[in-house]
Design a protein around this nucleic acid. Structure first.
Length: 114
DNA sequence: AGTTTGACTAATG
DNA sequence: GCATTAGCCAAAC
């Protein structure tokens, strides 16, 4: 039996975590949103909200996931590089989501929980 | 190998 | 409300 000499299994574990998070995001229905923190908790990773954002930003596996339906706690669209935030706003508006005070989403209406 | 950097969040003043 | 702090930790530098 071959001993594990290197860390060639670690990436698979990371990838599993990524996939678990991404598959949750995929389940958010159109016209609804979820938060980074809730996605993380639902994936069994409480207090790992930053990981969710980082995956959406970096992972090549994030192709095709409705990233625009993930918002910050309190229903705010997170800042980021480029015009992604505006794009997210547009997509959410296109799905019928209304903003309050021009920048906040009412989670009591639009929040989707896994 | 140590430090910095975030698509985050809850708590506190 | 806004600023700060602390917790979080994988990637990038």
């Amino acid at each position: 039996m071959r001993l594990i000499e290197k860390d060639d299994e670690a990436p698979a574990l990371c990838e599993g975590r990524h996939l678990r998070i991404l598959s949750l995001i995929r389940r958010i229905p159109p016209g609804r949103v979820c938060t980074y923190g809730r996605i993380a908790s639902a994936a069994g990773l409480p207090r790992r909200a930053r990981l969710v954002g980082r995956i959406l930003r970096d992972s090549p596996l994030a192709d095709g996931v409705p990233w625009h339906r993930v918002v910050g706690a309190g229903g705010r669209v997170s800042r980021r590089r480029g015009s992604g935030a505006q794009e997210q706003r547009n997509r959410l508006l296109a799905e019928g989501i209304e903003f309050e005070d021009c920048d906040r989403i009412d989670l009591s209406i639009y929040l989707w929980e896994p």
